[in-house]
Simulated assay, not measured.
Amino acid sequence: MTGETPAPPLVLVCRAAEDARRTAARLEADGFRALVAPLIETRATGEPPPDGPFDAVLVTSAKAAPFLAQAPIDLARTPILAVGERTAEAVRAAGGVAVATAEGDAVSMIARVRETFAPGTRFLHVGGRDRKAEPDASLRASGHGVCAWPAYEAACIPLDEAALAAVAAGTVDAALHYSHRSATLFVEGLAGAGLADHGRALLHAAISADAAEPLRAAGATRIAIAAEPSEDALLRVFADAASLAFGARCRAVR
């Protein structure tokens, strides 16, 4: 008589809810169980857009797309450069028409602007309050005008009770981390609930070495880091690490 088939690993997805649901669906399609554990929530800042006119628009996150309707631009005519294809899809869904796409990072975005737009072009960068210096700094250095509008912000929210209860019960096997900030919030949330030891025992997968740093500082030893800062790379490295860690519980090795 054979025993019951072991349950697939349960994975916490530690990112904003709207993104985490998409990631959870990908994990479940790959044979894992997923529990959405948002630590960051996207909220409008309420800051008014800067005065135009603008020759073109930069969009470095899909989260910025809903705010384009408030910008002083003609969505049907103004050229919009999106950082990657998912962001471009969100921009088109928001009404953007003349949408071009970079290759998913600031470096390719800077190169695309320099190839396509002459120095002196005035850009509106619709982004978050806690955005990185690039691509704005390099574009300004090459003579392009960039006016940043922090239309949204990533607000911290507590790790929810369902996630804490699952960690406390020992039913969580792994966690995915998408930024240094969210990993820090995860570590702090578990410590505040008296679950730091439980967190250290999990298999962690981080999108970058920077995102892994708070986990390592908290004493986690099983950390897989994506080869490049993309979700595809993160899920690949997680699947490989999970197969080694959980064996036959992972569909890929059954």
Rank of each mutant, 00 (worst) to 15 (best):
V36L: 02
L202N: 00
T78V: 10
L195I: 06
E41C: 04
V253N: 11
R254F: 00
F238K: 07
I207D: 10
R216M: 06
L75S: 09
A248Y: 04
L12R: 04
I225S: 06
P72W: 08
W149F: 00
T184K: 13
G95Q: 10
R15Y: 04
T78Q: 04
F117W: 03
A25P: 10
R21Q: 12
A241P: 00
L124R: 02
A29M: 11
A169H: 03
A220N: 08
V126P: 01
E188D: 14
G95E: 11
F117Q: 02
S208Y: 10
T60F: 02
G52V: 04
H180L: 14
V59Y: 07
C156E: 13
H180K: 10
V126N: 07
A155N: 06
P6C: 02
E231I: 10
P119R: 11
A162M: 13
C14R: 00
L81Y: 09
A169R: 08
E28I: 12
A69F: 11
R222L: 03
A233K: 01
G170Y: 02
A241V: 00
A227P: 02
A111W: 06
I157H: 02
E115C: 05
H204W: 05
H198N: 14
I223H: 10
E85F: 08
D232W: 09
A44C: 07
L234R: 14
A69D: 11
L176N: 00
A183H: 10
A93C: 08
M109G: 02
T60E: 01
A165T: 01
A93H: 05
F238R: 03
T116C: 03
T87C: 00
A212P: 06
R26Y: 12
E188I: 09
A226E: 14
L203I: 00
R236C: 06
G96I: 06
I40G: 00
V99Y: 09
A71L: 14
H204T: 05
D136H: 13
P229L: 06
A24T: 02
T2E: 07
R216D: 01
I225W: 09
E213Y: 00
E231A: 14
A71V: 15
D105A: 09
C147E: 15
L75H: 12
G84A: 08
C156G: 15
S182H: 06
P229Q: 04
T23K: 04
P214H: 11
L164T: 05
L68C: 12
A162N: 15
G96C: 01
E47P: 02
A17I: 01
T42D: 06
P50L: 09
F32R: 07
S108A: 10
E153M: 14
C147Y: 14
L203F: 01
T87A: 00
G145K: 14
P6K: 00
R200T: 05
R15N: 03
S208R: 07
K132G: 15
P150I: 04
G170I: 02
A196R: 13
F186C: 10
